[in-house]
Simulated scan of single mutants.
Amino acid sequence: MKGLENGLSRREFLSNTSKASLAVGLVGTGILSACSGEVKGDGKALLATSFTQTPLAYDYTALAPHIDAMTMEIHYTKHAAGYAKNLADAIAEEKVDTNKPLEEALAEVSKYTTKMRNNGGGHYNHELFWKVMAPNAGGKPTGELAAAIDSSFGSYDEFVSQFDTAAKTRFGSGWAWLVVGADKKLAVGSTPNQDNPLMDVSDFKGTPLLGLDVWEHAYYLNYQNKRPDYVAAFWNVINWNTVAERFAAASM
C-alpha cells in the first residue's frame, strides 16, 4: 500500500471519497462534471473531477523507465497532495459552493483569490494527468479520435509536432494541452503555472482531453534540464483509451 503524505492517509482518502456527494451539471465550457465522489453515469461523467485527491490506478513503478518511480511518488504524495490540501483550505476560506462542480469554479476562477486559482488548477491538472497515463500504453489513437486529429491537424505526426512544441516552448512552468474547443475542433496549446483551459482567465480555452505537466518537478530527477527528452518519453505512457473516451464525452 502506498504511503500518502501531507497528513492524508489512504484511509482518509477512501473515507473522503465515500462521503463525497455527486453533483452533475453543465458548466460554461459545455462539459458535464461532478463536484466530488466517485463518478458514475453516462459517458460525459468521465469528464468529472473530484475535489479530493483520488488514489493512483497504478504503482509508482508502473510508468518506468519513461517516468521513474521516485518522481512519481514525490509528484503524487508531495506536490499533488499539497494542491489537494490547499484547495480544501481555499474552499473553506472562500466559501466555495461544493454542491457545484469543480469545473464550474474554475470557469469563474477570476472571482476567487490566487490561492483558489493556483490550487484549484493544480488539483484539476494533476487529477487529469494521472488518468491520461497508464503502464503498457503509448502507440497511436484509433477510431473517431484519430479521425478528429487528422481533420484538425492534417495528420497525427503534425499533431505530435505541435504538441511537442507547446510543451517544449512553454517558458518556465506550466502545462501543454490537447483540447476540444467550442467549435468541436481539436486544438493544442499551453498555459502557465497551474492554469488550465477551463479557466476564464486563460487565453487558451477548451475542454482538456490530454495534459502534460512541464514543471521541473515532473521530470528533473530523471531528465535534469532535458525537457525535450521528457516530452518525447510521454508518448510512451499516454492512455489513448482514456483520451478517446474524454473526446467522445466532450463531443456530445
Rank of each mutant, 00 (worst) to 15 (best):
M1C: 11
G7P: 07
R10A: 12
L14P: 02
T17D: 07
S18L: 11
A23Q: 08
V24S: 08
G25N: 03
I31H: 03
C35I: 07
G37A: 03
V39N: 13
D42N: 07
K44R: 14
K44H: 04
K44Q: 11
K44T: 12
K44V: 02
K44S: 10
A45R: 09
F51V: 04
F51Y: 14
T52V: 11
T54Y: 04
P55F: 02
Y58T: 02
Y60C: 03
A62Y: 00
L63T: 00
A64Q: 02
D68A: 01
H75T: 08
Y76G: 01
H79Q: 15
A80I: 07
A84M: 11
N86S: 14
L87M: 13
I91P: 09
I91F: 12
A92H: 12
V96T: 04
K100W: 06
L102W: 05
E104H: 05
K115M: 10
G120R: 06
Y124K: 05
Y124M: 06
E127S: 15
A134I: 01
N136P: 10
A137N: 05
A137K: 02
G138L: 05
G139Y: 10
K140L: 00
P141L: 01
L145Y: 00
L145E: 02
L145T: 02
D150P: 01
S151R: 12
S152Q: 08
Y156N: 01
D157L: 00
F159N: 03
F159Q: 02
V160K: 04
Q162R: 09
T165M: 06
T165R: 10
A166T: 07
A167S: 12
A167Q: 04
K168P: 00
K168Y: 00
S173I: 15
A176L: 06
W177M: 11
G181C: 09
G181L: 04
D183Q: 10
K185M: 13
P192Y: 11
P192G: 15
N193T: 14
N193Q: 15
N196R: 14
N196Q: 15
L198K: 02
M199F: 14
T207Y: 07
T207E: 10
P208T: 10
L210I: 06
L210R: 09
L212T: 09
V214H: 10
W215G: 07
E216Q: 15
A218H: 05
Y219W: 12
Y219M: 09
Y220L: 12
Y220P: 05
N222K: 13
V237A: 06
V237S: 05
V243L: 08
E245C: 02
E245I: 01
F247K: 04
F247H: 08
A248R: 10
S251N: 15
